[in-house]
């Protein structure tokens, strides 16, 4: 099983519901003055990238769950690892020493440093991790009103994400870096 994310750039209206839902993973940061100083953002794992020139273009950026993850390669203790059952990139906080090389190594800038625990954070957060383990959708996918998000097993040809990948024109971000991300962007 390889779990992957899909984001449809043709449909996303930047409503922010996924981003704000994601903040449910970090209730301790809800009313912090600076919940995410590294991103100057909410305590959430999804951030917004907007092109202000030409046709307005948007990307919603969260962990790409790369098959060839630079953060896993860089991690000295093996705290950052790829979960064999699901293919998701996870963090074992017992082994993490907080060296931040995973944050530096990620070419997508998908990681941030939690201001209270000083651990690196990324998608999926603690709540979504449990939801996924129970076979439910992560909070970002569950809320999207524009049906611009999907999540599922790309090794299962019947899954809705596999069908969308087959049916639509999809691309991935920063493919030239060889990270083999599992976050598919429908164009």
């Amino acid at each position: 099983m390889r779990l992957a994310y899909l984001w449809d750039s043709r449909k996303c209206i930047a409503c922010g519901a996924c981003i704000i839902n994601c903040a449910a993973n970090y209730p301790e940061l809800r009313f912090e003055k600076e919940p995410n100083p590294m991103w100057k953002w909410l305590g959430a794992n999804i951030r917004r990238v907007i092109r202000e020139k030409g046709k307005p273009e948007l990307r919603l950026l969260s962990c790409q769950h790369c098959e060839n993850a630079p953060c896993v390669t860089a991690c000295p203790t093996g705290a950052s690892y790829i979960e064999p059952e699901t293919g998701l990139v996870k963090l074992n906080k017992d082994k993490c020493i907080g060296c931040k090389s995973c944050i530096v190594a990620c070419p997508y800038g998908a990681r941030w440093l939690h201001p209270k625990t000083m651990y690196p954070e990324k998608c999926p957060g603690p709540v979504c991790e449990q939801l996924i383990a129970r076979g439910e959708e992560p909070l970002c996918v569950a809320v999207c009103p524009a049906e611009a998000r999907d999540f599922g097993d790309i090794d299962d040809p019947q899954s809705s994400i596999s069908q969308k990948i087959k049916r639509h024109r999809v691309s991935r971000m920063l493919e030239h870096l060889g990270t083999e991300p599992k976050y598919f962007v429908v164009r």
Binding site: G16, A17, C18, I19, I20, N21, A24, R30, F31, P145
Partner: peptide, 12 residues
Amino acid sequence: TGACGRGASLPW
């Protein structure tokens, strides 16, 4: 069906 960022912010 909703929801947008406004709805998602109801916990706050």
